[in-house]
Write a protein that binds this DNA or RNA. Structure first.
Lengths: 212, 212
DNA sequence: TAGATTGTTAATCGATTAACAATC
DNA sequence: TAGATTGTTAATCGATTAACAATC
């Protein structure tokens, strides 16, 4: 066994931690120095015990009666979610969504740095989007391997998703952030996270049906 | 009690149904007419009993030995997720992301029709994005109410999220699809669905840390 | 000290998985 | 008919919630 085994964090916890971070940033801007689990819980309409259990995972201890040091907690969450570790990524697809993603400066905060974009439109190859060069997708495998790229952001139409995912996988990519509204197949060990805009929208529409 | 009470669908089911739909569309394109829960489950690396349980919610019955009629199932999911019911929506924020969302023709498939955009940049007011007029955000409450708009899509920077959400709420909106990387406060009864791009990215990065 | 909040242990809840009879 | 698949009931698992002692 040569890889370090880390106890996997429950998925719900992992999805809540970024929310805590958002709340903490808001509180910090208001000058708050120490924050209790109750405060965070109230902001998000969650249970305070749940918040404390989640915080346990990031290895931060609080002080009875006072709560958690807000700076310490913010940094610990950032470290835990790996935001302090800037990862270089390839963007595949430079259509509307790809263009928006390339221009989204915030990603740097979350440790993602898009260093190249790929598009099979010959008119786009050789140009740049938001200062990022647009290259031929056929170059993905070779470039990804030589540059040790670990994340690919997939923002192509559904029909083109699998073939471009395959190019990324061929290049030794470890994780794919999939914005295409389709399921892609990847070998075991490759992490595929679906951004799932349409699932999110469906969820909203169904909730509205159930309530009104 | 004057509102129809519908048994709420478990959230995990609601998040999986759009995935089933994607798989079914792919299978249908390959000419498949009848599909078993096992087939769907294998495509998504899920359990077939779970798939059957989820399908129960959409009120479709299958045939032992054969499975489910693919067209019937696709339509039932679309109906259940309310995709067949085109809802008009306002888009707030016409920056990079807003621009991409306005141009994302696929949303119509999922029953969302963006009919107006709002931006507080005076240079943008009066122009159009992808054929959609850009208006002054101050007009949101009045217009939303008069046009009976039920969904607001929030694609503004974090700092501007709450104030624009408030305008939508003032206009009687029922649901907010929030793309801003911040939590917004809304009164009870208003559904807020966070698109949570950053949460999705964090999730991917953490998974990579845990595996490698 | 008194009281608010943490951290932990136990109880509950709900979703997933297993087992299996019904059915085409 | 035999066998694959559904639909259902029961068992398991894991996450949430409740209870409470420890602590500053």
């Amino acid at each position: 066994m040569n890889t370090v085994q880390i106890k996997p964090t429950p998925e719900p916890t992992l999805r809540r931690l970024p929310l805590y971070h958002q709340v903490l940033i808001q509180l910090k801007e208001r000058g708050v120095k120490e924050v209790s689990s109750t405060t965070i819980a109230n902001e998000l309409k969650l249970d305070s015990v749940q918040v404390r259990k989640d915080i346990e995972h990031v290895q931060i201890v609080g002080k009875p009666r006072i709560g958690f040091n807000i700076d310490e907690l913010i940094l610990a969450i950032e470290k835990y979610l790996n935001w302090d570790n800037l990862t270089e990524a390839f963007l595949v697809g430079s259509g509307h969504l790809g263009f928006a993603l390339a221009g989204y400066k915030n990603f740097a905060k979350y440790g993602l740095n898009i260093i190249a974009a790929f598009d099979n439109d010959p008119e786009k190859i050789g140009t740049t989007v938001h200062g990022i060069p647009v290259l031929d997708p056929l170059k993905i495998p070779d470039l990804a391997r030589r540059m040790h790229i670990h994340i690919g952001v997939l923002a192509v139409p559904a029909e083109a998703a699998q073939e471009n995912a395959d190019l990324l996988i061929e290049g030794g990519i470890k994780g794919i952030w999939n914005f295409a509204p389709t399921q892609i197949k990847a070998p075991f060990g490759i992490v595929v996270e679906n951004a799932q805009l349409t699932a999110s929208l469906s969820f909203l529409k169904r909730k509205l049906t159930e309530q009104h």
